[in-house]
Simulated assay, not measured.
Amino acid sequence: MTEFYAEKIETALQTYISDHPGPLTREQAISAILENWFASHGYLPPQQEGRRPEDLDASNDD
């Protein structure tokens, strides 16, 4: 990787960290970026948050 390219990536990484709330380490940021990329490109299933079975009733049917 060229020095210029590495510098651009480092700048983008630092911007990503500063844009996300809470203390985020460099390793956590890289992990989050990779997880998002892998999921959006079909290498990981997308993370879905839903209702717990005991919280389901007719009022939340789609």
Rank of each mutant, 00 (worst) to 15 (best):
A12F: 14
N60G: 01
Y16H: 10
P53L: 09
I17E: 00
Y5C: 07
L24C: 11
E27F: 06
Q28R: 07
P46M: 00
A39V: 04
L13M: 14
E35T: 15
N36I: 08
Q14L: 05
W37C: 01
A12W: 12
R52C: 06
I9R: 14
T15I: 03
A12V: 13
R52L: 12
S31W: 12
W37Q: 04
T15Q: 08
L44D: 01
Q47Y: 02
Q47W: 03
D61K: 09
G50Y: 04
D62L: 11
Q14S: 05
D55N: 09
P53R: 06
Y16C: 01
N36W: 06
T11Q: 13
L13I: 14
E10T: 12
E10M: 06
R52H: 10
H20G: 00
K8C: 15
Y5I: 13
Q48Y: 01
G22A: 11
A39I: 05
L13D: 02
A29I: 05
E3A: 12
P46W: 00
Q14T: 00
L34H: 12
T2Q: 07
P53N: 04
R52G: 02
G42C: 03
E10P: 01
Q28D: 12
G42I: 01
Q47S: 02
T25F: 09
L44H: 01
N60C: 08
E35G: 12
E49A: 02
I30V: 15
P23I: 03
T2Y: 05
T25E: 06
S40H: 06
E54D: 11
W37D: 03
P53S: 09
I33H: 07
E35W: 04
S40G: 03
A39W: 02
G50S: 12
E7G: 05
L34K: 15
E54H: 08
I9C: 14
M1G: 15
I33F: 07
N60T: 09
A58M: 05
A58F: 13
H20R: 15
I33Q: 00
L13T: 03
A58Y: 13
P23L: 09
D61F: 07
E10K: 08
E49T: 04
D55Q: 08
I17P: 00
F4A: 14
L44R: 05
S18Y: 08
D61R: 08
T11D: 08
M1W: 10
P21E: 15
Q28W: 03
Y5G: 13
D57C: 09
A32M: 09
G50L: 04
E27H: 10
P23Q: 10
D61I: 10
Y5S: 14
F4L: 11
G42L: 02
L24N: 06
T25N: 10
S59Y: 04
E27C: 04
A58C: 06
K8R: 15
L24Q: 06
S40W: 01
E27V: 11
A6Y: 10
A12K: 14
D19W: 06
F38I: 05
P53A: 11
I30D: 04
R51A: 13
G22N: 07
R52E: 11
